[in-house]
Design a protein around this nucleic acid. Structure first.
Ligand code: ZN
Ligand code: ZN
Ligand code: ZN
Ligand code: ZN
Lengths: 159, 159
DNA sequence: GACAAGTCCGTTATGTTATAACATATGCGC
DNA sequence: GCGCATATGTTATAACATAACGGACTTGTC
């Protein structure tokens, strides 16, 4: 279990990497990785933070790629549907996926200080959830796990 | 682990019970269980389903208890803050708590067919989350667990 | 009882997030 | 080129949520 998001890393490299992965995934699955979709993913990767749809839209607007809400929401729907991004329900915001391709039930840790969102694999959580569910015959299709708290960095260096 | 919500039960009794509990809890903690707050909890208990703030407001309006959004949101804030109700982020909706008083990190199972929401204790999930978190030094303050799927009832009797 | 402080409530207005709906365009197989 | 599916541009609106302010009511204190 490693959490990208609270650690220093070669950001430039990680963007390029993720974009290449996304590219490959779309090619494999005959998905159309159009300019807007590509750009929205880049924006999310660049910030490495959860962004609201309207924040993204603002960036797109500056770049002349569309200024109406559906532009952002459609791109986000595509990215989320295809596992390239996730929606953080708690924040009504979106993040690029840190574990592209893996079939994951992601869990998120949201630092309320610095707003960083880290994605952690949560397979074990899913199994426990499934166990609880099976007792009542409930079939789990999707699970969301979002924890709010304070990251190590912000605990050490309070504002 | 028992899940109220997908099982038949004496609904009338369960409402009365919960209200009495709430009453007691408010008395103990010197909280003001005002008519609006009381009524909103009753409405939630009565439906035994997740309701949007505006759905609740509609009921209140019919009964002459207020017609502006803040009326509903203030009552909901009170109920959520004091553990008498929960917000389901995924649905932007609210449910009465099924385990009043217990210090719980609740998990929810949302049936996408019949819209029923069941609350299950999720202490074990929390511990796993804490474990994952501790590896990166993240301190978990609040956790949210929401599973979407299909309940036993709806699996047996598809629409 | 007078007063101050705190809490709750009514109301207006506005902010934020998300989607419906329809016209237009673009790509692709045939 | 034609027909179909998919993607985009655009307008409008729906759905969810809060800010802000003044008045009413409660509660504790003198
Ligand atoms: Zn992911
Ligand atoms: Zn932080
Ligand atoms: Zn509860
Ligand atoms: Zn159901």
């Amino acid at each position: 279990m490693s959490a990208i998001g609270f650690e220093e890393h070669d950001h430039h490299h990680c963007i390029a990497d993720a974009m290449q992965n996304a590219e490959a995934l779309c090619a494999t699955n005959s998905l159309k990785f159009t300019p807007t979709r590509r750009r929205v993913l880049e924006i999310l990767l660049d910030r490495h933070q959860a962004m609201g749809a309207y924040d993204i839209l603002e960036v797109l607007a500056v770049e002349g790629m569309g200024s109406q809400p559906p532009v952002a929401y459609r791109a986000l729907d595509f990215l989320v549907s295809n596992g390239l991004a996730h929606k953080i329900e708690r924040l009504n915001a979106y993040v690029a996926c840190s574990h592209q391709g893996e079939d994951h039930t992601p869990g998120f840790m949201i630092c309320t200080e610095c707003k960083t969102v880290a994605e952690v694999p949560a397979a074990s959580v899913r199994s426990i959830l499934g166990e609880a569910a099976s007792q009542t015959g409930f079939r789990v299709d999707r699970a969301m796990i979002e924890a709010e708290g304070v990251c190590a960095n912000c605990q050490e260096h309070p504002a």
